Computed example of a mutant assay.
Amino acid sequence: MALPLQPYPQLRSALHRLQGVPPWALLSLVLNGLLFITVVVVLRQLSQAGDAMLPQANAFAADRHVPIAPFEPELGVRHSLDYEQWVALLAAEAEAAVAIDAPRQTILLGDSLTLWFPASMLPGRKTWLNQAISGENSTGLRDRLYLLDNTSPEAVFIMVGINDLIWGGSAADLVYNVRKMVDYLRQTHPQTRVVVQSILPHGGETSTWEGRDRLLTVSPDLIQTVNGQLKLVAVETGADYLNLYPLFVNGEGYLRPDLTTDGLHLNQNGYMVWRTALALFNEAD
């Protein structure tokens, strides 16, 4: 039964103010609220289970099930999320988007570079779903695409591969996995724009990232070769290719120091470059 508005002047006033708010904005707020509730519930369950730390997982984790490089919040008890729990959290996010039929869904897939993309910097009037896991490689990402089966994205952006290369994975296997991802997404979401993004350069000798020695085994030539193969995959599968590499590389073939925090991850300037590229790419659609 509908509530009469006359006895509730505050409610009537609030509803009047909401009349000028675009529907996409309201639904985006609802989605963000659901995701926040999901995070709180998961962390509370972990706290009751006696876990001790929350990782901002990083690409240096050899064992995908053992979180390292913990993130320590300013206040409160530290918690832990392993890889399966991150996947469960992303599954809940995808289900929330489906439940409210979030408009103009655009999905980001990848590793820590994507995960730490500031939500406030993502462009356009879209419902952005960040489905990245830090430390992710192409095999892990390929195997969890089923989480998106019931979503209705306008576009899916994929950036993955640096972790494969850092840990000595085969470039051929990486390219094969990306091809399988595109094939799967085009089969399950035939109307969705699938965008393969290039792998970014790294900082080389100037890097301060804790896995610097492994990073130095990945040559600029290898990254460019893999990017060429990823572009070919996009062409052959009917996907789009967003070549971010030239925007981030310096004259020596390494990641520009003004765009990075440690030679691997991006700072705010780096994300602004990426944001601009996404905005221009979306406008060109």
Rank of each mutant, 00 (worst) to 15 (best):
P4H: 08
E95Y: 14
L54F: 15
A92N: 09
P257A: 11
T276W: 02
M121D: 11
H265G: 00
D143H: 13
T106I: 09
L35S: 04
Y271I: 03
V98T: 14
G270C: 06
F71Q: 08
D221H: 07
A155G: 02
Q10E: 15
V87G: 01
R142M: 11
A234E: 08
P22E: 15
N150D: 15
P190I: 08
L147Y: 14
L148T: 02
L46V: 03
Q191T: 15
A99Y: 08
P67E: 06
V40L: 15
H202I: 12
T192A: 10
L230D: 01
G20Y: 07
E283T: 05
R212M: 10
I68Q: 08
T208W: 06
G135S: 04
N267A: 12
A284V: 05
V156C: 07
A94N: 07
L215M: 14
E236R: 14
L11E: 06
A172S: 13
Q6T: 12
E136G: 01
D51M: 09
F36V: 15
L216G: 04
A49S: 10
P153R: 11
G161W: 02
A2T: 13
L145A: 05
I133L: 05
L26A: 07
H202M: 11
Q131C: 10
G124Y: 00
N250P: 03
D240C: 06
G203F: 03
A14M: 13
Q19F: 05
V66G: 04
R256I: 01
G228N: 05
S138Q: 06
A171C: 01
L122K: 10
Y245D: 05
N137W: 10
E74D: 11
V182L: 04
Q6I: 10
N32L: 11
E72V: 15
R44E: 12
